[in-house]
């Protein structure tokens, strides 16, 4: 397993250990001084403090202050109250969560099936992988423009295809803001699955290839059918992969912006059906100049992402701890 979230984001501590020649190294670092390391760290540290740390603190601070011509005025939790009673905010948050859940609920099973087939097929797995991964490299903006036409009700690729197989009543897709399986939300979910499937397949495939082959041999000796082996060996072994994909997939879904903005503008037309939480932040902060409301949204967004990360780590590490016992 090379893609466990733990290994991607946790300090492993391997660099701290000095097993050999501590005396010599201590001497060498004394003679050379420690300043060289500080000069190495200074430029990147400054960049991070100025462009990451400082604006983050500003976002938190702004959510408790109001910008007035006379300067910043403390506002307490006023902006959070404003935010939490704002139906547009809840609509955007609801959309983001709904679209994210629908996306994950479709893409993970689909990717598992395709990855399992790619893992077992004897010919052509490599070119197929390259093709499935192709949309991942295309910007979400370009994909949105393409799908704007694919979903065009009168002559789009999808409805044209549906008509040619004999359907006369074709959906409106992006023009229909209602909550249904043929409306704008369904359309952008199809788009997201189409665009994201390749990444989910490739990661699942790597997970499949890390399952030891002797597990399957043992199951075959016990007389298990390939399907039984898939359910009793493959799926449980993919648990870390699924947790990883759910975590990264959730964070990506929460940050969704480019494709929805291209299709529906900052308001997420039609009828705000495609407005995501980041688009709401963009609209309140950048277009309405309501920086405090935007900052309060940013704080809520930050807490949600952090919560998802912690839950995923907990879900992942819990099993690691059990395995250690």
């Amino acid at each position: 397993m090379t893609r466990e979230p733990g290994s991607a984001s946790f300090p492993a501590g391997s660099g701290y250990s000095t097993s050999e020649g501590p005396m010599r190294r201590a001497f060498s670092s004394l003679t050379r001084g420690v300043w060289v390391w500080y000069t190495f760290l200074l430029p990147p540290l400054l960049l991070i403090l100025v462009f990451v740390g400082y604006p983050t603190l500003l976002a938190f601070r702004q959510s408790f202050y109001t910008r007035t011509p006379e300067g910043q005025v403390f506002a307490g939790t006023y902006h959070f109250e404003r935010l939490l009673t704002n139906s547009i905010f809840w609509g955007a948050l609801g959309n983001t969560i709904l679209l994210g859940l629908a996306f994950l609920a479709i893409v993970i099973p689909l990717a598992t099936i395709f990855a399992s087939m790619l893992n077992r097929v004897r010919h052509g797995a490599t070119p197929l992988k390259v093709i499935y991964f192709l949309p991942q490299l295309t910007s979400s903006v370009a994909i949105a423009i393409m799908f704007h036409y694919v979903f065009q009700p009168d002559w789009g690729l999808l409805n044209g295809g549906l008509r040619s197989i004999g359907l006369s009543e074709v959906p409106l897709w992006l023009a229909d803001p209602r909550f249904n399986l043929t409306g704008s939300r369904a359309a952008v979910t199809v788009l997201a699955v189409w665009a994201g499937l390749g990444y989910f397949i490739i990661v699942t495939l790597a997970g499949l290839q890390s399952i030891p082959a002797d597990l399957y041999d043992a199951a075959a000796i016990d007389g298990a059918t390939p399907l039984q082996a898939w359910f009793t060996i493959t799926l449980p072994s993919l648990r870390p992969t699924f947790i990883f994909l759910i975590m990264t997939g959730t964070i990506d879904a929460l940050s969704r912006f480019g494709d929805l903005w291209t299709l529906g503008g900052p308001g997420g037309a039609p009828a705000r059906s495609l407005q995501s939480i980041v688009m709401y932040m963009f609209q309140t902060g950048f277009e309405s100049n309501d920086f405090s409301l935007s900052a309060a949204t940013a704080v809520v967004f930050f807490l949600i992402v952090l919560g998802v990360t912690i839950i995923a780590f907990w879900g992942f590490l819990r099993k690691e701890f059990k395995a250690m016992k």
């Binding site: 990451v52 983050t56 976002a59 940050s255 912006f257 902060g285 940013a298 967004f301 992402v305 990360t309």
Partner: peptide
């Protein structure tokens, strides 16, 4: 910084 999404700090 890994835990701070870009979107949190984009407006400031």
């Amino acid at each position: 910084t890994l835990f701070i999404p870009f979107e949190t700090r984009m407006i400031p």
